[in-house]
Design a protein around this nucleic acid. Structure first.
Lengths: 161, 161
DNA sequence: TATTGTTATACTCTATAACTATA
DNA sequence: TATAGTTATAGAGTATAACAATA
């Protein structure tokens, strides 16, 4: 069983890593937490044969029919080339369709099939339950503040300098 | 220039992705935010030839001399095999040493060299400045709540089920 | 037997350049 | 020329099994 990083106990010493330096290094906690979310969510979605990326893409397509791939990539904050294989996978499984836009034959209008909508609904329910479990003991107010901080960090992103 | 995911504007439509489903999917925002931290931090550390993982390992070794590799891996929440190459890199650059423990010849006691301590100090200062920039507009209270939430998520981790 | 560090390996995610077809 | 999607590719992070040395 793993122990929290704050104090690592060994048979004869206690190594405190939660000191001056790392207390101020939020990236450290962010990474640990993201690891937890990523691995727990992967396990949660595994029975549905979805990963975090394919799940996110599916939800976005279901909720935004007609979305272009480049819009979807932007919404997911990934590069367009990396989205191609994700949409490929969803399309191969019959969950989404690539329709051509009538007015711009370069782009696709992404749409979920009935199967895709169905799987999305199932996935949504297990993910919601999973997140509720992870956020147990956290009040709605605290959740809201945390989300606001995450969004602030994203807004403060330093671009291309 | 990228736009926020909440509303994706195109020439003739506005696709809202910030709806019922994704508002409740915190992993989505976590991932976006972690991407920002990861890529910004990589750029910040690049002049020092450090990455997030090598930086974290170096800080932990500097602050916890004598740490074993398995303890360090646990503190960083990564698997032991993945830590080996990280310590290899730091050792090759003369930043840390692998001393043998006298009472357990299987394990190493990790220690930072003078050069390692020096680089750690430099890295710490650029990372601190970088985090301050990312957290601009966020109050200390909000920061504290966010950190608490992250730690709660980690504590609620679902293991091996 | 169990643990520390290691090797090898596979999979996923990320990032960039260059191509095609359309605009 | 610019944009949408694609291909190819490289790099980084993560996870597991199996091994040697030591406990």
């Amino acid at each position: 069983m793993k122990k929290p990083a704050a104090d690592i106990e060994t048979e004869d010493t206690v190594v405190s890593v939660n000191d001056r330096t790392l207390r101020s290094f939020h990236g450290y906690q962010m990474k640990r937490t993201f690891n937890v979310i990523q691995s727990d969510l992967s396990r949660t979605l595994k029975p549905l044969e979805l990963r975090m990326l394919t799940y996110t893409a599916l939800v976005l397509i279901v909720d935004n029919p007609g979305l272009r791939q480049s819009q979807l990539a932007e919404a997911m904050d990934i590069e367009r080339p990396n989205l191609v294989v994700i949409v490929d996978e969803l399309e191969r499984r019959g969950l989404v369709l690539r329709d051509r836009l009538p007015n711009d034959r370069r782009a696709y209008a992404l749409k979920a099939t009935a199967a895709g909508q169905d799987l999305c609904k199932q996935a949504l329910s297990v993910v919601t339950a999973h997140e509720a479990a992870l956020l147990k003991g956290v009040s709605p107010d605290e959740k809201a503040v945390a989300l606001k901080v995450l969004q602030a960090i994203e807004a403060n992103r330093q671009r291309d300098r």
